[in-house]
Amino acid sequence: MTERLAQARALLAAHPVVDGHNDLPWALREQVRYDLDQRDIALDQRAHLHTDIPRLRAGGVGAQFWSVYVPSRLSGDAAVSATLEQIDVVRRLADRYASDLRLAHTADDVEAARAEGRIASLMGAEGGHSINCSLATLRALYELGVRYMTLTHNDNIPWADSATDEPSAHGLTRFGEEVVREMNRIGMLVDLSHVSADTMRDALRVTDAPVVFSHSSSRAVCDHPRNIPDDVLALLPANGGVAMVTFVPKFVLPEAVAWTRAAEENMRAHGLDPVATTPEAMKIHQAYEEANPRPVATAATVADHLDHMREVAGIDHLGIGGDYDGTPFVPSDLADVAGYPNLIAELLERRWSEADLAKLTWRNAVRVLRDAEAVARDLGTHRGPSLATIDELDAAGA
């Protein structure tokens, strides 16, 4: 495996990872209230975080979508304000670490960052509650640099159903469809992680541009509602989109699903958010794990998903979205952002070609970003900003 790891690192030097989802901004909010002096990511922060610049470099990361996530318990203007604070810290990180990070708004920016030896830093909003049912707010987030929006997080919103809530809209409402169209028009990628299967299908029916799944794996391999059903994966070649496999054990390892459910209930019993990564939360997680050893996922577990997803969707429609700093548990050999070579080595062992791996790590994600930009240019020639409101479109309960 040593030889495979060397081969993997060489491949990543030429074709670095574009990772679809990292929750470092929220971890910085939770742990230090955005005080970057307390979490200097130029230094090794493994005692606190999955992510820092030395480990991004070691992992072969060339571009990162930083999630400007806010929890769905926040709503209305509070959600919008918190999203703006998340955007602010990403911009501050790029300014503070300008020799290593470069803000990127376009595919050309991503390529330029790579040419400069910097890590392209893009942003993705995680959940439509971040726009408070306002298309003008959506456009404002785009102007601030947000390049994808996950339509929901863990809870339904008024215009779209989440994968982990009870069906309400049964997909997208008419206003939800208008959100997708407006995202196409401005060039913001439609992210279908976290949404229900019906929402996935509705969005794929409506969209003119390729979609992304920023951090989702295969439901056929691990039957969790956060994963992508095969019939949806089979729609990606016609759409041109990319499904970015995630590393979260409860989404990739069937044996981990029940264990994680019990661990989350334990967190709630202590009055904490199940996905919290504060020091207090991690102590409770650790104590629970010591008393109840967890099933452990590995890079091979993730590779099983990629093998299946390649069979269904094809190599041109796969990517990577680790969800680091957004989960308390990770696979044993993908413990942080330095771990990507272990996954690439596993895929090399399974006879994935270097050309296919280059698509997985870099080319597919950059292509989708570029294709969405092209759709926006085309739509902009004959479609102006949408002035639709949710009251206007969904008044009849559509």
Rank of each mutant, 00 (worst) to 15 (best):
D100H: 07
A345T: 05
A256C: 08
A303F: 05
H285T: 08
S121F: 10
A47M: 02
P279Q: 04
V375L: 10
A299F: 11
D23N: 03
A243F: 02
Y69P: 11
A79L: 08
N342D: 13
R96H: 03
E349A: 15
T150A: 06
G240F: 11
A376N: 11
K250A: 08
T260V: 07
R118V: 06
P328T: 02
D371G: 00
A365L: 09
G397L: 04
P328K: 00
Y34K: 07
H382E: 09
L101M: 07
Q45A: 06
D44M: 04
D165T: 04
G240L: 08
A303S: 13
E111N: 05
L369F: 14
A345G: 00
R174L: 09
R114C: 11
A287S: 02
V330F: 13
S193V: 03
A263C: 13
T246Y: 13
T327L: 01
P295H: 06
A6L: 13
R92A: 12
G384M: 13
Q7N: 07
L253E: 01
V257K: 09
V18Y: 10
E143M: 04
N184I: 09
G20A: 00
L204I: 10
R261F: 09
T207M: 10
E85D: 15
M282L: 12
N292T: 02
N342V: 02
Y69D: 10
E116I: 04
V337M: 04
A299E: 08
E30Q: 13
A107N: 11
D100C: 04
D161W: 02
S193E: 05
L318A: 07
A256R: 05
A220M: 06
H215A: 05
L135F: 01
H305N: 03
F247V: 09
V296M: 10
D198K: 11
N154D: 12
L103S: 14
A13C: 05
R29Y: 14
L103G: 15
A82F: 09
A78W: 09
L189A: 12
D95P: 13
R201M: 13
L192G: 04
E280N: 00
G176L: 02
F251K: 02
R219N: 11
T389R: 00
A203L: 13
V18N: 00
T277H: 04
D307Q: 12
A107W: 13
E346N: 03
E280S: 06
G117K: 03
S217T: 00
D191C: 01
G124I: 14
M244W: 13
A27C: 14
A78E: 15
R102H: 10
Q64P: 08
A365R: 12
Q64M: 07
T83I: 09
I186K: 06
R205F: 02
M244H: 09
Y148M: 14
L84P: 15
R174F: 01
E349T: 13
A365Y: 14
E3P: 14
A263G: 14
V80H: 05
P295R: 05
L369I: 08
A220F: 14
L74Y: 11
A58L: 10
A78I: 01
L141E: 13
E290F: 09
E166P: 11
P331H: 03
L11N: 01
W352Q: 06
V206I: 14
Y288S: 09
D100T: 06
R350Y: 06
P385E: 15
S134D: 14
D202Y: 11
R9M: 08
S99I: 04
D95W: 06
C133E: 12
R118D: 10
D231Q: 03
A209P: 12
M200R: 14
